[in-house]
Write a protein that binds this DNA or RNA. Sequence first.
DNA 1: AGGCAGGTTTGGTCATACCAAACTTGTGGA
DNA 2: TCCACAAGTTTGGTATGACCAAACCTGCCT
Lengths: 245, 245
Amino acid sequence: MHGELTGSDLKAPPAPPSRAADFVVSEIEAQILSGKLRDGSHLPAERDLMVEFGISRTVVREAIAALASRGLIESRPRFRPVVRKPGFDTALTAVGGMVAHLLSDPDGVKNLYDTRIFLEAALVRNAALHARKEDIAALRDALQANQEALTDSERFYATDVAFHAVFYGIPRNPVFPSLHKAFTTWLAPHWKRMPRSPERNRVNFLSHREICNAVVERDPDGAEKALNAHLNAAWEYVRGTFEPG
Amino acid sequence: MHGELTGSDLKAPPAPPSRAADFVVSEIEAQILSGKLRDGSHLPAERDLMVEFGISRTVVREAIAALASRGLIESRPRFRPVVRKPGFDTALTAVGGMVAHLLSDPDGVKNLYDTRIFLEAALVRNAALHARKEDIAALRDALQANQEALTDSERFYATDVAFHAVFYGIPRNPVFPSLHKAFTTWLAPHWKRMPRSPERNRVNFLSHREICNAVVERDPDGAEKALNAHLNAAWEYVRGTFEPG
DNA sequence: AGGCAGGTTTGGTCATACCAAACTTGTGGA
DNA sequence: TCCACAAGTTTGGTATGACCAAACCTGCCT
């Protein structure tokens, strides 16, 4: 049936590649890139693909599954698969399931959270140095919304997230908003179990205001310090959700 | 236009109907987490799984494929799948294929590279502030290796990567080395096409030395500035690999 | 004991069939 | 004319069963 993979392998140990569906995958991959399959359009029917590539439906389905898990196509149970040219955040979404397992280990949560702190510290520093007028305005708006939600823990959480999100938007690099989304999504389960109260909200709000003020005053060190204090304090509460101590 | 979907029968976004393989996936997922399937052990034969779950081999294979693409098991062509409890960098590896597509767009490369610069700037700053003696020593070693490879562009590249890697190790958070690996892997294709020469190597080495010195002198601003200059200069060369201008 | 040959597993692929849900189409009523 | 509903067709999901080739295992033979 199909040709051979002329043994030009790349690596000795894991090399003898005899894959068939992979060919289809890369083919469809290429078609998506070349635009033959445009974003949003849907994939041909499986039965059409099998004649187009001269393979069995088994392989077609396998290929589709692979593409789907790579985020290149979106395959709902009974519907026609939809072509999706992935963005940075769909990429991060795809790892989500795996990250969930990483987080079964408390160290995983800690490491991920520390990464977030590290990045966000750099972001507030960046904000203090480079924030534009609109950014400052957005920050103030977010802060006010945060304040107005002090007594509504549900809404406070949302405005809290929104406040932090502002910093991720300032560099004008789409990777950062995607990262923010990823962080909040991944850490949300633990966050949800964190005790909440108007008092806690108030503390957090004050931290936000402190950060905001430092940014407005163009004080990167102050902003960074405030953010670190803020997030490290939050950690003490989060860790209670899985470290009984 | 259409009336509306003021929801009667259709479940709008995601959650509707039927998937059979997903059950198997989550089941095996759970078994991996619970330790019933230990890391490194191999999965039961497909024909065994189909009786264990009372499903057809089709579904079993689909489930295995899904697990494999999520990085929970490692499935080589003709071999028994091996259970793998994923780590941060296997997670990032899994996205790799997708990222490759993001990079088909020059903006994607730019955004990713900018992200790297941003993170690495924060890392060198962190290094200047918190590097331990061992870290400084490692940095000096890496720098020296880098110098000794000046005339061998191949080896220079390796030592270059290794030098930068030191900074990712300083926070002692495994996420950062994984990120470094991911960055270098993803950007490598473009990097490979970048013109190289002993002169370029020398320029890069001098940048490295400058960064190293700033770190040794505990000068975060200087280190950050030097790194930004270094990487932004490199970008000018990299962009030539896809922007013919 | 060591090594090779043959039988047995096991993953990869194909072909076929059936079901149920989604899509399409055609007809009839307001 | 247009909407609504029902029958017919497509299409994805799953199940069987079969075959091949490579990997694995077993046991004989030197």
